[in-house]
Design a protein around this nucleic acid. Structure first.
Length: 432
RNA sequence: GUGAGAGUAGCUCAGAUGGUUAGAGCACUGGAUUGUGGAUCCAGGGGUCGCGGGUUCGAGUCCCGUCUUUCACCCCA
């Protein structure tokens, strides 16, 4: 009976595994050099943990189960709640700022489509305990540091940035009630995803008043922070958040990544918990869904039963990123790394044991070494050596009776006969 | 959850109007070559044609269902 892979999952053959490792190793390396420490949490949590933040709607999109003790659990669809829990548990003993990252494997029971699967990896980088917009700039830099390193330039990716707090203040100043904001965000989030008339139609369902609606549409059409000043009289909160955004762009300039960043008032994020700066990372051609996104979530730890501590961070998934990297031709070189330092061949069955023994000696000395399961035909063994990308091939033949080996350089084809003991004394000094 | 397209060997795909034993290239295994690899040539293995049901003397081909997949919508943490 053939059992197929589960819907929305991937098998990682060595080829795909090499790509996955390359992506994740890059995430980790960049996180560490930006001063972040790695953490992780269980792959399943109490179901209710994921309901706190997002409500019952989210439950439909979770893989959930009841264990034998009757506990209602769910495979994690994100790691931020676990992060909040972990930080809250030790909030009084953790030195601040808390700069942590993680590469969790996540699960969402959605219908798979381009760039979205049911099981995936996500790079999460967060700074907890810093109010300053400098922290937002630092995590954005961290994301760009990675993207730049793997070869994505300013013609490939863009970070679109706005501020929830500013948007809220501006909407209130044009007459939108505080209680209407939440629902409106969902519509405004579509601003960049819909044609103008469809967007306006959708907006009309939320805002009946023509004049008020016009003002919102005008507001959502601004293309720069300066334009906001021209369009509206700013109250104190609005001015504060505009200043904050301006400072963020200034800092991104200092960090040398300004050309990757642009203001876009249409960035709202679907998620309710964002409180300040929000951003999404897109491919420049905007052909794919968002590569990642993030923002400030100053109230989240409190919602999870902790003190009110400011926090900011982002997440980047592996699916869209891999598609973009593939499109840009940046994955071609990521092949499985089965590269042998030495391949040990023997010309005759009688030398087989010597070949095995020699191979193990090489391995113990720290070299990557292999031998063939075939003993017939040297030519076959040499073919196997080149298939496995061996740098050198050691041939054990009749010279071995005089304790000598033939060492062949597979790249140049040159070979020399060397004394067995000399070969090993030379090797060990090299390995150190 | 809604809508549309697709499913033949590990991969890419042939297989008019239903008709004997379902093919090719690549990949894989072996040989040509008993102490010298990447090439070439030759040979071989590999398929319940996604699965189930129906129509028919006969189904890879037509019909229905189902699963998977792709794309879009919903949603996007």
């Amino acid at each position: 009976m053939k059992i197929p892979p589960v819907k929305g999952t991937r098998d990682f053959y060595p080829q795909e595994m090499a790509v996955r490792n390359w992506i994740i190793d890059g995430w980790k390396r960049v996180s560490v050099r930006n001063g972040f420490e790695e953490y992780d949490a269980p792959i399943f949590e109490y179901l209710k943990m994921f309901q706190i933040k997002s409500g019952d709607e989210i439950v439909e999109q979770l893989f959930s189960l009841t264990d034998r003790g009757g506990r209602e659990l769910a495979l994690r669809p994100e790691i931020t709640p676990s992060l909040a829990r972990m930080v809250n548990q030790r909030i009084n003993s953790l030195p601040r700022p808390i700069k942590w990252f993680s590469v969790p494997r996540l699960f969402r029971a959605e219908r798979p489509q381009k760039g979205r699967l049911r099981e995936f990896f996500q790079w999460n980088v967060d700074i907890i305990g810093v109010d300053d917009v400098l922290a937002d700039a630092e995590v954005i830099f961290c994301a760009l540091d990675y993207l730049r390193e793997v070869g994505l330039g300013r013609d490939d990716v863009v970070v679109k940035i706005s501020s929830r707090q500013m948007l809220a203040a501006l909407l209130r100043s044009v007459g939108v009630a505080r209680s209407e904001l939440e629902e409106l965000y969902a519509v405004l989030d579509k601003r960049n995803k819909l044609p103008d008339d469809a967007f306006e139609e959708m907006l009309a369902e939320k805002i009946a008043d023509e004049g008020k609606r016009r003002k919102v549409i005008d507001l959502m059409s601004v293309e720069s922070i300066e334009q906001i000043n021209e369009l509206l009289e700013l109250d104190e909160t609005a001015q504060e958040s505009v200043n904050e955004l301006e400072r963020l762009f200034e800092l991104l300039g200092v960090m040398g990544v300004a050309e990757y960043c642009e203001f876009d008032i249409g960035i709202v994020r679907g998620l309710a918990y964002y409180t300040g700066i929000v951003y999404e990372i897109y491919d420049k051609a905007s052909e794919l869904r968002a590569i990642g996104g993030g923002g400030r979530y100053d109230d989240l730890l409190k919602q999870f039963g902790g003190p009110a501590i400011p926090a900011t961070g982002f997440g980047i998934g592996d699916c869209v990123l891999a598609i973009l990297l593939e499109d840009k031709g940046l994955l071609e070189r990521q092949l499985p790394s089965r590269k042998l330092d030495y391949f040990v061949a023997c010309v005759d069955k009688s030398y087989r044991q010597a070949a095995v023994e020699l191979t193990m000696k090489l391995r113990s000395a720290g070299w990557t070494a292999g031998f063939s399961y075939k003993t017939a035909k040297l030519s076959k063994q040499l073919k196997e050596a080149s298939d496995q990308k061996a740098k050198k091939c050691i041939i054990i033949g009749d010279e071995f009776k005089n304790r000598q080996l033939v060492v062949k350089d597979m790249a140049t084809g040159e070979q020399e006969t060397v004394d067995y003991d000399k070969f090993f004394s030379g090797l060990e000094s090299k390995a150190r």
